[in-house]
């Protein structure tokens, strides 16, 4: 038994391949038999991944979900930013450049609008919860953009660590909800073409959320959504601690 555990741990990435393969097979079986194909197999797999992350986090007390359990440590490498970005770029191969060109400006605009919109929503919630200083309000607003923009803004503005933690929390909630929610509302919001996917990536912005949400909805849309989402965090880190912070300070 110990030898088996050692083998699995030593070959972390390989074990992760096996684990994800089993999770995927089970998910497609569930999708097929229990939902009769209504809920896509990859949507089930991603939801199951999040569930595993929840129990992994409960069990280990760490912040990397299942990856903090040593048997499943390879999940961190397989699901890390390096391989994720590598695979996202690969999905661009064969993408329709006409749609990218045509919706380019609208996509760029949706990134800026998306950052400002999420920031304002987050700031309004912070205000409603009793925060009255511009630094805290801006940091929480930035967290509603993504969980990277939040701490970057908070650190730049000198926010308290409690507020920075809240901003990360808001970003995490957003990212998880986008992953689970996208396949459920895709039909309702018309997310079935490259144009909508570019707007979606720009408005949502959370790279992991968009990556998961589109994978669960229609993998063909991935390059379009990922293309705009990849600019979101950068634009957020640019606008939130500067322009948007001044705006909040001016209003208060």
């Amino acid at each position: 038994m110990e030898t088996l555990a050692l083998t699995v741990t030593k070959n972390g990435l390989i074990s992760a391949f096996l684990l994800v393969g089993v999770v995927t097979a089970f998910s497609y079986w569930v999708s097929d038999k229990l939902s009769r194909g209504v809920i896509h197999g990859s949507a089930v797999a991603i939801a199951l991944g999040l569930l595993l992350a929840y129990f992994g986090g409960l069990y280990s007390g760490g912040n990397r979900g299942l990856a903090d359990i040593s048997l499943f440590s390879g999940v961190a490498l397989m699901g890390g930013a390096m391989l994720r970005d590598f695979a996202i770029v690969a999905t661009a191969f064969g993408a329709d450049t006409r749609a990218l060109r045509e919706a380019g400006w609208a996509g760029a605009a949706s990134v800026v609008i998306g950052v400002v919109l999420s920031f304002l929503v987050g700031a309004a919630v912070a205000l409603a919860f009793g925060y009255r200083d511009a630094v805290s309000i801006s940091t929480i607003g930035a967290g509603a953009a993504t969980y990277i923009v939040g701490p970057v803004t908070g650190t730049a503005l000198g926010a308290s660590s409690e507020v920075i933690a809240l901003s990360v929390g808001a970003g995490l909630v957003k990212s998880v909800l986008v992953m689970i929610g996208t396949p459920l509302v895709a039909k309702l919001i018309g997310l079935n073409n490259p144009y909508a996917a570019m707007v979606y990536g720009g408005l949502m912005g959370t790279t992991s959320g968009v990556a998961g949400g589109l994978a669960a909805t229609d993998p063909k849309l991935v390059p379009y959504g990922a293309m705009t989402a990849t600019f979101y965090t950068g634009v957020g880190c640019l606008l939130a601690p500067s322009l948007l912070f001044y705006l909040v300070r001016a209003v208060l």
Partner: peptide, 22 residues
């Protein structure tokens, strides 16, 4: 490999952090 990688990415999210963040 994109979708399998995204499944692994989902499995390493800080879901507990999201749920317990208040």
């Amino acid at each position: 490999m994109y979708i399998p990688i995204v499944v692994a990415m989902a499995a390493k999210q800080n879901v507990v952090g999201a749920i317990e963040s208040g």
